[in-house]
Design a protein around this nucleic acid. Structure first.
Length: 106
DNA sequence: CATATGACGTGAC
DNA sequence: AGTCACGCCATAT
């Protein structure tokens, strides 16, 4: 099992309407401190894999892609009810994936 | 086997 | 808020 598999496994667990950061993914996959790998793994995702790759963003609450792909990801997220600030950022406090369900959202 | 690369994170300035 | 440097290391070539 490659590191990518571990990462993908975690990504597949991100619930609808929530987002997770690369660092968070890496940590949950047992690869703490290797956020880059999480990102690289996303880049290597096969289109036919059923994976919510769009729910993974960087620690600043922004999409790490640029160009048309970024637009695609953004629309996918908005379709799930995730909001973007005028500066194109997502409020992780609100939409971040927390294992311990935050009372404020529940 | 040696290097380069990268959908990142964090801290310093 | 933006830039720079550095750490991290599995894959790719």
């Amino acid at each position: 099992m490659s590191s990518y598999d571990k990462i993908w496994k975690v990504v597949s667990q991100i619930p609808y309407g929530r987002v997770a950061t690369y660092g968070q993914i890496a940590k949950l996959a047992g690869l703490e401190g290797q956020a880059r790998l999480a990102g690289y793994a996303m880049h290597a995702v096969k289109p036919d894999k059923k994976l919510p790759w769009h729910r993974v963003i960087n620690s600043q609450g922004r999409i790490s892609l640029i160009g048309p792909s970024a637009k695609r990801q953004r629309s996918l997220l908005e379709k799930e009810g995730i909001e973007f600030s005028p500066s194109g950022r997502i409020a992780l406090k609100k939409f971040g994936w927390q294992k311990s369900t935050p009372r404020s959202l529940r």
